[in-house]
Design a protein around this nucleic acid. Structure first.
Lengths: 195, 195, 195, 195
DNA sequence: GATGAATGAGAGTTCATTCAT
DNA sequence: AATGAATGAACTCTCATTCAT
């Protein structure tokens, strides 16, 4: 049970993270100054340090905020009463949806080992591995159940995740394809690999 | 006909670029200092500026060195007397080969609009577009000749390039899969999308 | 109505400008480092950038501080109910007084087009022109009212300003002539040109 | 008796000095790089060091080249069989002529104590003093012979030299007044101070 | 005589971070 | 809970100078 105060702080933190993510996405981690992040929220540089202990922490929590969301969604999909084909389809669609609706957050997730040192890096990589393993699991079970062909799971997972992670680099809300259309196309085409 | 001196200087420049690319790849552009790049070559910071006018130029020429190579290879493949299926296969394989053998260079190519301002950015983007268009062309002609199914060219190209560009993030020469094996797997699986 | 904080910051800025001017005057703009200016005020280099965005700005504001003072004084003299002869005398005396009491500031005003680029240069030159025009105006009105002979206004103004601007190069508070004496001599001798 | 070689070197040195002076005049001493000076003469930076031991020497010899000329001219005027009034007139005219025809050289002479350290500074200041003393001498003799009024020699000399040294700051060959006209005006007006 | 290449000391500037208030 | 001010370490870049060839 969180107090009103705690909830207020949590809300402020998320505000900061979203703002930071947007700028990180546009200018990159190093290209972004604490001042910019603060200014966008009508705060001062100094105040940010009340909420996050340093710039690294800002990036880290951006990472985790989106990873947590992604993993929760994946869990739901994985545990749903669907065929593996359907699960893979849904996993791909869910990723596309998030990647297009939260473009900034996703861009921030790039090249973690260039930005983090040990303390945070372990956690980040753990999240990523966990996310990747859901795909592996789905592929594996799909093969076992004869829904999928006998593919090289790791290679196919890399192809799928590569295609998905590339979306942030080219997707634009003003582009010709909507997130919905991309998710349809991606799931349809990528499924052809496994079936 | 280039003089001895010109060739010598060109060689030195390439040396510098390779050295720079290796560090850029490891630590990112901003995480890399001119001093580090110089030190690795037993030079001094100041000397670097004799060969490249600034840090941006270093990154830019890394970009172009690998893009030029990639595009030349693509041209050869495109103009060869093969079926479109074979051409697509070869294009994918060639990309994997380069991406794995020149991992550092490829990593450097990431997020150009975060690192460059107008003067260089235009040229970079032009190269990328040119490279992408070879894939589009192959896909288009493959469809026209009925070798490929009636796919959405842009979406499929994005999937292919996404998968290929992701390789640098996970490939390691010490990993379980060789570049050769990856190129076989990727070409085989990606071809399933179009056929 | 300026707040306490605003006045405090303004005071600090003026402190910095005076300190900077003193060193600029002694060593020249390029011969002066930001570190020296800061050190003289027991600050660090970095802190200076909190008050002035760069070295240029420091010089620019030195310029404008003294030009503003000069112009205000000239305005008063120009609008006072005196004869043109008295006005010219006072203008010369006022300049000498300022040039001798604020020697450093005046030395800094030298060769603006070597130190400034467009953004600042326009403003600097505008101030200078404005100052010069007061002399022209006085000379012109003096001629019209028959107080002065029919002289070439521009040439005489150049002689007067030249003589005045040279003072900073040789005046020393420890010298044999006081500012007061110089102002008497200069006004008396220069008046002989126009009468 | 100088050999052919020596004369060739001397000629090259003067070429360099003129070129250097032009750039110094435009950009200031610190704003000028050895490279620029060299480039203007189609030389390389390194070659300059064959003729002048360093940048300071370049500036110093610019100084002395023009001071030598000025002093020789003054000597001639001083020793000519003319009245003191005529001598002063000629001295002023000669200075204006040189200042307008060799604008760059004259600009370079500015603020010697900011650019030189002991070795050169003494010599520079000696030249300047010598030049100034010719004016003092003329004024003094003019007073003694009752041609001039009983003026304060130092003050008047400062006015004259100030007016003359200011010319470089505003004179332009494309301006409305020719060097000839300026010399007429300046000598006429400045004479009014002493007579 | 000339130069290409290298050097190294130092400059201006930026910015994450701290902390008294 | 917020902030203004200060800091200092790091970084990019410049340039006079040197010297082997």
């Amino acid at each position: 049970m969180s107090s009103f105060k705690e909830r207020k702080i949590a809300k402020k933190k998320e505000e900061i993270l979203r703002s930071a993510a947007a700028i990180f996405a546009e200018k990159g981690y190093h290209g972004t100054t604490m001042e910019e992040v603060a200014a966008k929220l009508l705060m001062t540089k100094g105040s940010m340090y009340y909420y996050f202990k340093n710039k690294d922490a800002l990036l880290f929590h951006c990472h985790q905020m989106i990873m947590d969301k992604s993993i929760v969604t994946m869990e739901e999909i994985f545990n749903s009463p669907l065929t593996w084909t359907e699960k893979l389809t849904n996993a791909i669609k869910a990723h596309v949806q998030l990647a297009t609706s939260e473009k900034s957050m996703f861009m921030v997730m790039d090249k973690p080992n260039q930005h983090f040192t040990d303390e945070y890096l372990q956690e980040i990589l753990a999240s990523r591995t966990k996310y990747a393993q859901y795909f592996d699991q789905i592929l594996l079970e799909g093969i076992r159940s004869k829904e999928f062909q006998n593919i090289d799971v790791k290679m196919v997972r890399m192809i799928i995740l590569g295609a998905l992670n590339w979306i942030q680099e080219w997707y634009s809300p003003e582009g010709e394809k909507s997130g919905e259309e991309i998710s349809e196309a991606f799931s349809a085409y990528l499924l052809k690999i496994v079936i």
